[in-house]
């Protein structure tokens, strides 16, 4: 393979200036430059967080999102990242019992709080009624949105144990399913609620 030759430097700002007007009208290359170097000391904070019932202490980088902490540092990869922007719901977990997007919250903000992930739904090896119902109604197709759907449903049932189909749709709006198995997810939650939470 060819070796990288060192090239003359062109500063980004100079480049942007150089193309000036053309950039604004004809090309408008987006890319608002906010640059930093990794040599800056990266702020870190020690936190204490309860995850699926177990209290854990860890030093986190302040910039870590909660989902990063869960997946990369606690190995809880059941929580997925679909967009990292609060636009899909794949990363939904419960924070103090309420569904939130773990991609749009910082890990430091979970200090002193309690997080439940899909891994925490199963109690003593027994599936949660929702999990059982998701299986029976074929909720997951590709399954990538499923953990998020489960956690949203869980949060909904905590607040409203007997929701109507419309209440389920409203409560789970924040969870996209591109396989579009919405009908089955709603049926599954209805059935789980009827059966009562175990």
């Amino acid at each position: 393979m060819a070796k990288l030759k060192s090239k003359k430097k062109i500063s980004r700002r100079k480049f942007l200036q150089g193309t000036g007007a053309a950039l604004a009208v004809a090309t408008a290359a987006p890319g608002v430059g906010a640059q930093n170097t990794a040599t800056d000391a990266i702020p870190r904070t020690a936190i204490r967080v309860t995850v699926n019932g177990t209290q854990r202490r860890i030093e986190v980088e302040d910039r870590w999102t909660l989902v990063e902490l869960l997946r990369d540092h606690f190995g809880l990869t059941g929580t997925k990242i679909g967009c990292d922007r609060g636009e899909c719901g794949a990363c939904t977990v419960l924070l103090d019992g309420k569904p939130i997007y773990s991609c749009s919250n910082l890990a430091v903000w979970a200090d002193g709080r309690s997080v439940q992930t899909v891994e925490g739904l199963t109690q003593n090896g027994r599936l949660d009624a929702l999990q059982q119902s998701f299986i029976e109604h074929d909720g997951p197709q590709c399954g990538f949105c499923t953990s998020g759907q489960l956690m949203s449903a869980k949060g909904l049932l905590i607040r409203n144990p007997r929701p109507t189909a419309d209440e389920i749709r409203a409560g789970m709006t924040g969870n996209l399913c591109r396989c579009s198995n919405y009908n089955h997810y709603v049926e599954a939650v209805l059935a789980a609620a009827k059966g009562g939470s175990r």
Binding site: T77, E119, T122, L127, P140, G143, T146
Partner: peptide, 15 residues
């Protein structure tokens, strides 16, 4: 039901 349904609803399925 899918033979791997449990993996899919418990977060154990490895993507």
């Amino acid at each position: 039901p899918r033979i791997d349904a449990i993996e899919r609803v418990t977060g154990k399925a490895t993507y």
